[in-house]
Amino acid sequence: MSDAAIEILNVVKRYEGHVAVRDLSLRVPRGAVYGLLGPNGAGKTTTIRMIMNIIAPDAGEIRVLGVPSSDASITDRVGYLPEERGLYRKMRVRDVLIFLGRLKGVPRRELPARVDRWLERFQLRGHGADWGASRVDELSRGMQQKVQFIGALLHEPELVILDEPFSGLDPVNAQALKDTVAELRTQGRTVIFSTHVMENAERMCDAVCIISRGEKVLDGAVSDVRGAHANHTVALTFEATPPDAVLALLRDPSRIARPTLPSRQMELELHAQADAQRLLADLLSAGARLERFELVRPSLHRIFLEQVGASGVETGMSGHG
């Protein structure tokens, strides 16, 4: 048995008029939390749909948990939260979940207890209330998201795929989602999620893959990715808004590779020939009062911008993300 949860080899997917995914190869290790990052229209959703065998690749090979993704037996071992959320609006929540559980091969007699357990866990049941008996369209959006999330996890899959799981979540529910992902990882399950919010990816992922315009830009363990780009990034925190002389230094192209809007906290990329120690001395002599001056490994956000570039974001096509 392969130790990869997912292996994608030279996969291509074309749509009329454009190529959504071109020659993509990646490998997701078992037990990892894996981030699929990219701007809108980069091909994330298309890639995920191909992993889920909802659409077929035009070329290449995808293996999920060691078997080809087209193998029907694999679906019961995978949980999926699509980017486009939705449930049968007129159905009762409990019935929807039992339906989804049955589609994943959970025995009917086990389902009611299991559904109740999950509803309680997501505060949809208990303290005298039971949203399981309500119709889906009677629930708030946040609650519906939770129900959908339960639907993806109810059958306790080995592999969980979440497409943009944070979109539309309020901070409380977003935290609940992060906790659940952390718990899934301690249980040894593999979690893949796509996002364009780099902070989430950085905090949660063991490994990431950044794709843009259907192509892989980079991939690997988060620590490796950040280490490989840890050449010239400085994090600054000023005590107060810095004087103009300081700001002028921060705009000097011979020191700073990429100017950033001035603020109290900044993350700067130094010019390749610039020296961080020299910059610190110059800043202090220009009258800056610093709370922090740190040579850091760049955030995923910065790496993402560097690699994908603003143009990659702007020209990203909507639709088959």
Partner: peptide
């Protein structure tokens, strides 16, 4: 309702 995609994953 976009529910098709959930069902199609199974």
């Amino acid at each position: 309702t976009r529910v098709a995609e959930v069902v199609l994953s199974s």
